[in-house]
């Protein structure tokens, strides 16, 4: 039928393309222009103002540090969860359902949950107090305890963001026929060898997707940090937010936005290159 009317597929796709073009490409172009212009003239003044700001270096450092710590831990936990749940027969769906609950919670809400645990009058201090570990309220989230603050944010991010990695990894593991592992077992591979030499290479595409998605999201970290640390722990998106709302300087905020985009694109390209998936070597 569509052979007679070849324009039909295009017609059906048109609304989504128009929608994305209007609400994504146009703002994108505007943002880039905003970042690299000054009073309608191309200029690097905004970038200069961004990098000379007192919080810039700290926010770049914090964001990268958080990403470097959080993403590998999330991948490792997701792999462990996926491998464990694969061994479960009955109740598998329920376990997966419970594990994915953090997916349904907004990042700000997740941040507030951890705030209620870790603030001075929070559950964590109550527990430590009742166990006799501390004599009075301890502070974990202040600028005086940067390590504890960093750990708190990392833990909250890991709790909140591992589920999506796990979903992708479980989907990848499901694609690997069990005969591969059985064959490896018969020919003498132990559990670790099977994991490193058979399973991991075979879920490479899923691993790649999970890494890209999770890394891009990690560079965009904001609400959890904002809820737990406020400005004690500056990150890139937080700085963009401050320039936009508190300083009312949209141009420097745009410069931050463009910087985050460039970092994300670079990370994606690095992953695509480093974890090149050869379709010839897939099941």
């Amino acid at each position: 039928m569509t052979q007679n009317r070849p324009w039909i597929p295009y017609l059906l796709i048109l609304p989504s393309v128009a929608f994305l073009a209007l609400l994504f490409v146009v703002p994108l172009v505007q943002t880039i222009w905003l970042a690299v212009s000054d009073n309608g003239v191309p200029s690097l003044a905004n970038a200069e103002r961004m990098v000379t700001d007192i919080n810039f270096t700290r926010s770049v450092k914090n964001t990268f540090l958080l990403t470097i710590v959080v993403v590998p831990v999330q991948i490792a936990i997701a792999l462990a969860m996926g491998t464990m749940v694969a061994k479960v027969g009955r109740g598998r769906e329920t376990i997966l359902w419970i594990w994915t609950i953090p997916l349904g919670i907004s990042d700000l809400a997740a941040g507030l949950v951890w705030l209620s645990i870790l603030q001075n009058t929070g559950y964590f201090n109550s527990l430590l107090f009742s166990l006799g570990v501390i004599g009075r309220q301890a502070s974990w989230l202040s600028y005086q305890t940067p390590v504890a603050l960093f750990i708190a944010i990392a833990v909250a991010e890991i709790w909140r963001g591992t589920a999506i990695v796990m979903v992708i990894i479980v989907a990848g593991l499901n694609q690997v026929p069990k005969e591969f592992k059985e064959a490896a077992e018969i020919f003498g591979a132990g559990p670790w060898t099977r994991f490193w030499r058979i399973t991991l290479p075979l879920i490479r595409p899923a691993l790649q997707s999970a890494l890209i998605l999770r890394t891009v999201l990690a560079f965009e970290v904001f609400a959890v940090v904002y809820a737990l640390g406020g400005r004690n722990f500056p990150v890139l998106v937080g700085e963009a937010y401050n320039w936009q709302n508190q300083n009312q300087n949209y141009s420097v905020a745009a410069a931050y936005a463009v910087l985050i985009m460039i970092i994300s694109l670079a990370a994606t390209l690095i992953y695509l290159k480093a974890l090149k998936v050869d379709p010839e070597r897939l099941p």
Binding site: P177, E179, F180, E182, A183, E185, I186, F187, R281, P283
Partner: peptide, 18 residues
């Protein structure tokens, strides 16, 4: 399995694609 001294050929080959 690996201590049993046997080898196996599977129905769907299970030849490692990578």
């Amino acid at each position: 399995p690996k201590d049993r001294g046997l080898a196996m050929v599977f129905q769907n080959y299970a030849v490692f694609p990578h």
